[in-house]
Amino acid sequence: MRAVGRICGQLATVKACSGADPIRVGRSYEGVGKSFGALKAVTDINLIVNEGEFITLVGPSGCGKSTLLNMAAGIFAPTEGKVFYRGAPVSAFNRKVGYMTQSDHLLHWRTVAGNIAVPLEIAGMTKAQIRERIAELLDLVGLRGFGDNYPNELSGGMRKRCALARLLAYDPETLLFDEPFAALDAQLRLKMQVEVRRIATQLRKSILFVTHDLDEAVALADRCAIFTSRPGTIREVLDIPLPRDRDLFHLRHNQHYIDLTARLWDEMAPAISAEEH
């Protein structure tokens, strides 16, 4: 089967994708498929990510959502189809994107400030520039005053904030999240969701966010892509017509939100119950 997959990343400017195809604004996956040996992880994926858009990816375990992120990052290449970023095929290690996983991967031998400094040091910034940027980022993620602490002195939520600051430090246009808050308790998770939503809007980042949490998938997203089970493909992309500056703390009472989560649940339930067997 020939699959055509295209992950459309976001273009910086809509102008950049002038031409016959006005939809293709950012990163696109065109008929993308990826196999690991005989195992087919994803197949026939077409997704276009627009500039500044927050897309959540949901689906049963092992359906290849993470594979999609890895392909967007250029960590591995699709076996079928193509992944484009701003019109150009993604090559190894796409530095326009930042990646955050469930494990925060902080360097435990560096302080919070030291961790945030890593991408800045790699970029070759001067000490003074780095110090200034770190102060800015600590403020942004709400960690002011914790720069000299070691990660093992921080709570789970603060570690996430630190990882987020490090991720934002080198200013990637697109952020890839792979269940970053799965290990947090419900309250902390909500707080971090608010932070991510706020920062994404404020800094105009485009976001691909993999999650298992259907509430999270609706609460955060502008659009939500639903995957089928392996070999995964996108069954449907739900538009989430919640306002851009939504109040995550009070979504529980929003009728749109209630309807959408119920709808998403109905979509997912057959796949989830099938997973049991």
Partner: peptide, 21 residues
């Protein structure tokens, strides 16, 4: 963790950076 190495690579790290940091 290879995941950590990948995260650094996306930050633009080369092999020397990965080694040292």
């Amino acid at each position: 963790s290879p995941e950590l190495v990948n995260i650094l690579r996306l930050m633009g790290a080369n092999e020397r950076h990965v080694l040292r940091k």
